[in-house]
Design a protein around this nucleic acid. Sequence first.
DNA 1: TGAAATGTTGGGGCG
DNA 2: ACGCCCCAACATTTC
Length: 480
Amino acid sequence: MSTTIVWFRQDLRLLDNPSLRAAEALGLPVIPIYLWAPKEEGSWPMGGASRWWLHHSLSALSESLKGIGLSLIIRAGNSVQELTAIIKASKAKHLVFSRRYEPEGMLQERAVESQMTTLGIDCQSFNSSLLFDPREVMSGKGTPFKVFTPFWKACLKSRLIELPTIAKPLLKPALRSPSSLKIEQLDLLPRIHWADGIGKAWVPGETGAQTSLQVFAKSVLDEYSETRNLPSLEGTSRLSPHLHFGEISPRQIWEVTAENPMTLSAQSRTGMATYPKEIGWREFAYHLMFHFPFTTNKPLRTEFSKFPWKTRKSALLAWERGSTGFPIVDAGMRQLWEMGWMHNRVRMIVASFLVKHLLISWQQGAKWFWDTLVDADLASNTLGWQWVAGCGADAAPYFRIFNPVLQGEKFDPDGRYVRRWIPELTKMPKRWVHRPWEASPADQKSCGLSRKSPYVSPIVDLREGRDAALQAYQSMKERR
DNA sequence: TGAAATGTTGGGGCG
DNA sequence: ACGCCCCAACATTTC
C-alpha cells in the first residue's frame, strides 16, 4: 500500500492543521517528518531562543503524535535530499505540507515541489499559518497594500476566513518507519544554562498554546484595550511564540477572540476591536514580506538607504545587556534576555531608543531580537523595526521619538515593572524610579549606586540624542 | 501606537 | 475698579 508523507514546518500542531486533514482524506498510512535545515534560511537561521523553543515544541509534537499512534521522524540536512530519500525508502506517493512565506522558505518549497514533479509524487501545500493568503488580498488597482487600515478593511470584506476544524485527525501509521534522529541530536539547546528563565516562563507545544488561549479569552481579553499597554500586568495574550511555530492556528484564535457573538461586542465581531486588529497587523506583516521580500534586509522606503547610521559597539552592547541607564529600556532588555520575550509596548520603547537616541540601525536591533526572542518571526520583526525606524510601510514619522522617561512614567507609573527587572532600583523612590540620575545623592547611595552606575550617568543625554536623531533625518532628506 | 515648542486663554495677585 | 503680569492649563504647530 502507498504512503503519505506529512512534512511539518511551522505548523507544529494536530488541531486545525490542513495538511493533516489532507492526509486523513487520502486515507493512506502516514509518515510524519520534521526537517532541520538551517542552511536553507539565508541570513536568518533560527536564533538561540527560537531553537530552545523548537526543541521543546518538537518533543511535544512527537508525544502527541505518539498519542494517535504515529512516530515523528526527525532528519537534518538538505531538505530535497532528505525528502527524496524518505520517499524512495517508503515508496510514498503523496507529500503534504504547510506553506511558509519567508523568502527563503518559499525558495525551499519551490525546490521541493519541482523535485516532486520529477519524482512523479502528488504534492499538496496549504496555508495553515495565516487568515489570508498574501496573494488573495490586493488593492483595487491589483497592487499590494502599503497602509494597514485599507489592507485590513479589504481582508475583512473578503470574508475569506474559514472556520477552524478542531478535531484530532484520524491517521494510521506506516508499517515501516524510516530512520530518525533523536531531537537532542539536532543540538538545539544552549550549552550553558541561560535558558533557565525561559523554561520557567513558557510551556512550548500545542497544549501550552491551547491553555494560553483559554486563559487569555477568559481573564484578559475583555480589558485588553486598557491593560495591554501596562508591562507590569499580564495584559497580553502571550500567544506569539505559539503562533510563530504554528502550535495554534490563527483561525482558532480568531474564532475565540473575534467571532464569538455570545461574548463580544459588534465591534469585535467586525474584527476592528483592539485584539483582533493585532492579528490583523500580523497578517499585514506577512502581506508585506511576501510582496516586498527585500524588506527583511533593506528599508522599504529607499531614501533610508542613505540614512547616516552610526556604529557604536559599546552603546549597542549596553543596549543588549540592559545597562543604558534608562530604566524602562533596561528593564525591557533584561526581560528579553531572561524570558525570551518582551512586552510589546516596551519593544517599541527600546527600539525607538536604539534607532533614534543611539542612531544604531534597525537591522542591528532586528538581529538581536532575532536571536533572543522565542517568538522571533521574520515578518513581524521586519515590520516592527521598520515601523519604529520610520522606513517601512505605514510607519511612524521619523520624528516621532519616544522619550523613555515619559513612556516609563506613563505606562509603568508605580515603577513595578522596572523594579521587577532591575534590582538596583528596588529602593528607589517612585518619584525618581524612571529618572534615577535626578534623585538626590542620598537616594542614589541608599540603592547602592556608585557614580559610575548607568543610573547615575546614563549613556546618552536624552536631549542631545533627540537633536542628533532629528539632524540625521534632515541630512538624509537633503542628500539626493 | 509622541514630545517639545509655541500660542492662547483666563484666573488671581497686586499695585 | 482697573490694568498689568504671572503662569497654569489647554490647544496648536513643529520636529
